[in-house]
Design a protein around this nucleic acid. Sequence first.
DNA 1: AAGACGAAAGTGGTTGA
DNA 2: TCAACAACTTTCGTCTT
Length: 299
Amino acid sequence: MDCPPDKIIFDSERGEYICTETGEVLEDRVVDQGAEWRAYTPEEKITKSRVGAPLDPLMHDMGISTIIDWKDNDAIGNSLDENKRKKMMRLRKWQLRTNLESSHDRNLFRAINEIERISSLLNLPKVAKNEAALIYRKAIEKDLTRGRSIDEFVAASIYLACRKMRLAITLEEVARYVKNNKKDIARAYRLLLNVLKIKVPLNDSRDYIIKAGNILNLKTETVRKAIEIAEKAKKVGVGIGKDPGSLAAGAIYIACVLNDDSRTQRDIAVATGVTEVTLRSRYKEIMRALKINLTPSSS
DNA sequence: AAGACGAAAGTGGTTGA
DNA sequence: TCAACAACTTTCGTCTT
């Protein structure tokens, strides 16, 4: 029932939070929208309260901007005299220079639009989107983007953010929504890893099992069985250096047959992103390693 | 008729000289 | 930069249910 927080992953296909321990879907994760502080007296309320919107990494200037209006009126609506109007003109110009005319900021501005667009297409949770924006921001600070494609780094940032938070996502899924090819995105991704020194949890077949289990509408029991099989297989060395998705596919297939929760190889292959042939070779391999017999009743 | 099987050739990525 | 290599894919004919 209760899941340790580090075992919870987000399934981008369905927009649900899932526990990787049991495979169950956590439908009501309550998000507390209130203030994190409490005021016991009116004075405290004033001192603790902060003015303005919270910092938002998705805004190119973190959301702290106060924009100077183009209207030549003061706050009450009276028009300004000649001197003041000139002064405002200078201020506006200065603000534009500092905010948008810096190439970094313009770059970031475009990038964040892209991050927004792709994230919503992938159904990413807001935390992942923010993470991607932060990663991109760091990439700009390190000058990684100069002379390279923005989209490439946007895709790489999103992918990295997802990997960092253990969202089961593939590079293909991200690449689908940008014009750059996988190779270029992968290169940018590796660059990000190296330069930003971000450590990423290894791709775990368990995450793929959970994700595929949801796509296939498997019974919780079957998903648990598949995870168990995959873990055992890993312990005896099956699937080392192989695509974790393929191990997931094999484990799921075996679990399905054992639990009488039948799915075709084709369906499982599609859900895990491998082909039937790969699924077959992996599941044979697992059966050999674990000495599982799929048809104990017959023959 | 659908699904499972596996051989053979092809593809894209990694490694090591 | 290139060739060798492993993992995986595509394709397709055959077998099983």
